[in-house]
Structure formats: structure tokens, C-alpha cells
Amino acid sequence: MIESSKNIVFFTGAGISTESGIPDFRSPGGIWTKMAPIQFQDFLSSEEMRRESWRRKFEIDKTIKIAQPNAGHYAIARLIKHGKASSVITQNIDNLHQQSGIVEENVIELHGNGTYASCLTCSTRYELEIIKQSFLGKDELPLCKFCGGLVKTATISFGQAMPVEAMQKAEEAALSSDLFLAIGSSLVVHPAAQIPMIAKQNGAGLVILNREQTPLDPYADLVINDEIGPVLSEATNR
């Protein structure tokens, strides 16, 4: 299917990054089974919740910052580099697709990026190391130096609106594809999980590669329940 396709689009979830040592959020033993997610409205209204959010962020970063792209990430990067694939739509916030060599404009991040922060009012970008030093060293919560707004990791929290531009780009990419590969996603988080069906209903082939079954399996042209890195490496090296 890959060889005969002219415009492949990838859609990736947490499953591709667990092979880099990053824990996922929803599966048994995942992060949300150990602690409840902080709702966006609670982050806005409660200083205590903002402190807890940043505390969790810097604790989780101990794992995320040492993670490196794996065979699955590099397989996707190869296909994009060689012009077989145009983009990767990702639910992940770990920046590993960019680290694998995919240029920024070819990565569509539906849930944001956890490697930096931004002001919720004016969108000014802030690097995490500066925030970390002030938070851990002086117990200071970050505020925007330009407008005084709240600063938050550049990720989409529970209850926070999805990024309009990223969703639009994802839908356009899905509509342009002739083969859509959904990889490492449970395909239960909406509205992101609707995107593979947009491609399918527009005539694209749909392949799902995930360790467990997904709700969209009955609609797929091919379903593979296996490890992601080895399968993608073999498929892209033919």
C-alpha cells in the first residue's frame, strides 16, 4: 500500500512514543490512572492548581527530556523526506517527530507542544528552563512579562479549546491523502479521533497500527496489532 500511494499522511498517538520510554496517559498504569488531570478552568481559577500543574510538569519532564526518537519516528521521517508522505498529524506533545528530522511545518500538533510555554493572553513564548528555575528555586509562578497574563505549557488541557488552525490543517491533510496511517492511538479522544474517518470517507486507504483494538478498526482497510517501530521500519525499508 505504501509503494502505490502518492500522498501518505500519518496520524500518531502516545503508542509511538511509549517505545521511547515515555509513559502514556490513558492505558492501564498510565499517568491518568495515578492522578486526575487538571482541568483548564481549574488552572485559570486556582493558584493551587497552577502550582500543582507546574510541579507535575517538571516531574514528568525528568522522563520526557531524556527520550529520543525511536525506529517508528525515523520511519515516518524517511517517508516524508523522500516525498512519499506529506505530513504527520500528532496527538503527542513530546516534540519527538521534530527531533527525528521532520521540519516544523510538516508536523501538525493537535494537543500542542510540551517543550515550551506560552502566555494565555498574548501568546508570547517562554522557555521552560527559566520558568523551572524561578518555580523550583523561588516558588514563583510564571506571569507574562509583557501583559501580565498567566503562562502555561503550550499544550491543550482538559476543557481547553482545541487549536483551530491545527485542526483545520489536519482536516486538509486528511482530505489530501490517498493513504492514511493511524499509529499508536486509541482513537477515542475526540475531535482528533474523527480525522482518520475524514480521510477514509474521502476515498483514502486507512491503515491502523496499534497494540490494542480501536473503535475504528471495522472501517480500516488493514489493522495491525503489533509493536510500532519494527513494523514501520520493515514497511518503509522495502
Score class of each variant (00 low, 15 high):
residue 137 G to T: 07
residue 156 I to W: 00
residue 130 I to D: 15
residue 117 A to H: 03
residue 166 A to E: 11
residue 120 L to P: 08
residue 166 A to S: 15
residue 102 I to A: 07
residue 120 L to V: 13
residue 141 L to K: 02
residue 128 L to K: 14
residue 127 E to I: 03
residue 109 E to Q: 15
residue 127 E to M: 03
residue 168 Q to M: 12
residue 96 L to S: 09
residue 100 S to W: 03
residue 149 G to H: 06
residue 166 A to P: 05
residue 96 L to I: 06
residue 147 C to R: 00
residue 148 G to K: 05
residue 149 G to K: 04
residue 95 N to Q: 09
residue 90 T to Y: 00
residue 130 I to G: 11
residue 126 Y to A: 12
residue 149 G to E: 08
residue 141 L to V: 01
residue 101 G to T: 12
residue 104 E to A: 13
residue 138 K to G: 10
residue 111 H to S: 10
residue 148 G to D: 08
residue 158 F to I: 12
residue 94 D to N: 02
residue 156 I to E: 05
residue 169 K to N: 12
residue 96 L to G: 07
residue 145 K to V: 03
residue 156 I to P: 04
residue 153 T to H: 01
residue 143 L to I: 14
residue 122 C to I: 12
residue 160 Q to E: 15
residue 158 F to C: 09
residue 99 Q to C: 09
residue 114 G to E: 11
residue 126 Y to I: 08
residue 94 D to P: 09
residue 151 V to I: 15
residue 115 T to S: 12
residue 142 P to A: 02
residue 104 E to L: 08
residue 107 V to I: 15
residue 155 T to V: 15
residue 125 R to Y: 05
residue 128 L to Q: 14
residue 159 G to I: 06
residue 152 K to F: 09
residue 153 T to Y: 02
residue 126 Y to C: 09
residue 167 M to W: 04
residue 169 K to L: 13
residue 149 G to T: 03
residue 170 A to S: 14
residue 130 I to C: 06
residue 110 L to C: 07
residue 162 M to E: 13
residue 165 E to W: 00
residue 163 P to I: 03
residue 116 Y to N: 14
residue 144 C to N: 11
residue 143 L to P: 01
residue 111 H to I: 03
residue 148 G to S: 02
residue 141 L to D: 10
residue 96 L to A: 11
residue 133 Q to M: 01
residue 163 P to K: 01
residue 114 G to M: 03
residue 119 C to E: 13
residue 97 H to K: 12
residue 171 E to D: 14
residue 134 S to A: 13
residue 146 F to H: 10
residue 112 G to S: 06
residue 124 T to Y: 03
residue 152 K to H: 13
residue 170 A to C: 08
residue 155 T to E: 14
residue 163 P to A: 05
residue 149 G to A: 02
residue 103 V to S: 14
residue 152 K to M: 12
residue 146 F to V: 08
residue 127 E to V: 02
residue 98 Q to C: 11
residue 168 Q to S: 14
residue 139 D to R: 01
residue 165 E to D: 12
residue 126 Y to P: 13
residue 154 A to V: 08
residue 171 E to T: 15
residue 124 T to E: 15
residue 141 L to S: 09
residue 110 L to V: 07
residue 112 G to V: 05
residue 134 S to R: 13
residue 110 L to N: 11
residue 107 V to S: 09
residue 168 Q to L: 12
residue 118 S to T: 09
residue 110 L to S: 08
residue 129 E to Q: 07
residue 151 V to D: 07
residue 147 C to Y: 05
residue 144 C to G: 08
residue 159 G to F: 00
